[in-house]
């Protein structure tokens, strides 16, 4: 029948070293989710090799993959995925429940929560925590089994900008402590904190550069810089009487719009959000 076979990933060749901080970027449909699933041992490539810490995971069965996930991978999801009825501590203990370390789970979970700065919120349930705190709990859960890789899928996608930068700062701190981190994101701002950016489009790696040398990213940084300038102007103008406010708002919106068009034109895989516009909008809105 007419089943269309789609190659979600095609000829991807990646080598990620210990203690790297890598951002994987790409539009939706570019295959970044599939790549993340394979990196996270949730899925196996239909052909090809994925060796994680010397383990040939492409040959493993479901049970063995589950053990690899338990020991080697710490997942952080966009929507946190915390168990709603359980306390933060219980949520963090979850991965240890499925490992040999379950009898030390409580202690280790407490330590992990301390690392993310939530030692005072351990007995709270997810619905008693803010979005940022929830994501911190999720990070603690990912850390608790001391995995080789911290694998974050749009970790800031459900967070506002302030909380996002908190989480990113947490990632940077963990990276400085020696953690290998892979972030899947489409936000340039998030990616800017990584050491290396891997861009995917139509299942292929279209670029793989250190962050500082990534042409798209440099473009973004330049754009950001001017946006921030505009913001600074906005803030200055906010001090002058209200009648003058309209013109300045119009100016800066136009500017932001131009910028975003410029960036999109450069990249076929299209970066949907201009991260820089978010804070700008916050100021601009009447």
């Amino acid at each position: 029948m007419g089943v269309e076979r789609v190659r979600a990933l095609d000829g991807v060749d990646l080598d990620i070293q210990r203690n790297e901080f890598v951002a994987i970027m790409g539009a939706s449909g570019s295959g970044k989710s599939t790549l993340m699933n394979i990196l996270g041992c949730l899925d196996r490539p239909s052909s090809g090799i994925y060796t994680l810490n010397g383990k040939p995971t492409h040959k493993m069965r479901a049970g063995a993959l589950a053990r690899v996930r338990n020991q080697e991978i710490g997942f952080i999801f966009q929507s946190f995925e915390l168990l709603p009825r359980q306390s933060a501590l219980k949520n963090v203990m979850l991965p240890l429940l499925y490992s040999k370390g379950m009898f030390k789970a409580r202690k280790r979970a407490k330590n992990a929560l301390k690392r993310v700065g939530l030692e005072t919120r351990m007995s709270h349930r997810p619905n008693q925590l803010s979005g940022g705190q929830r994501q911190r709990v999720a990070v603690a859960r990912a850390l608790v089994s001391e995995p080789s890789i911290l694998l974050a899928d749009e970790p800031t996608g459900n967070l506002d900008s302030t909380t996002s930068s908190e989480i990113i700062a947490l990632f940077k701190q963990l990276h400085d402590e020696g953690q290998t981190i892979i972030i899947v994101t489409h936000e340039e701002e998030v990616a800017s904190h990584a050491q290396r950016i891997v861009r995917l489009s139509d299942g292929k790696v279209i670029s793989d550069n250190p962050t500082a040398e990534d042409p798209l990213h440099r473009k973004f940084v330049t754009a950001m810089a001017s946006t921030i300038q505009t913001q600074v102007q906005d803030i200055d103008q906010n001090h002058i009487p209200k009648q003058l406010d309209d013109t300045s708002t119009n100016n800066s919106t136009k500017r932001a719009h131009e910028l975003s068009q410029e960036t999109e034109a450069l990249d076929a895989s299209s970066i949907h959000t201009m991260p820089g516009t978010k804070p700008a909008r916050g100021v601009i809105q009447p």
Partner: peptide, 8 residues
């Protein structure tokens, strides 16, 4: 989630 964190 349980499977992702390692439940066989």
């Amino acid at each position: 989630l349980r499977k992702a964190v390692g439940a066989r």
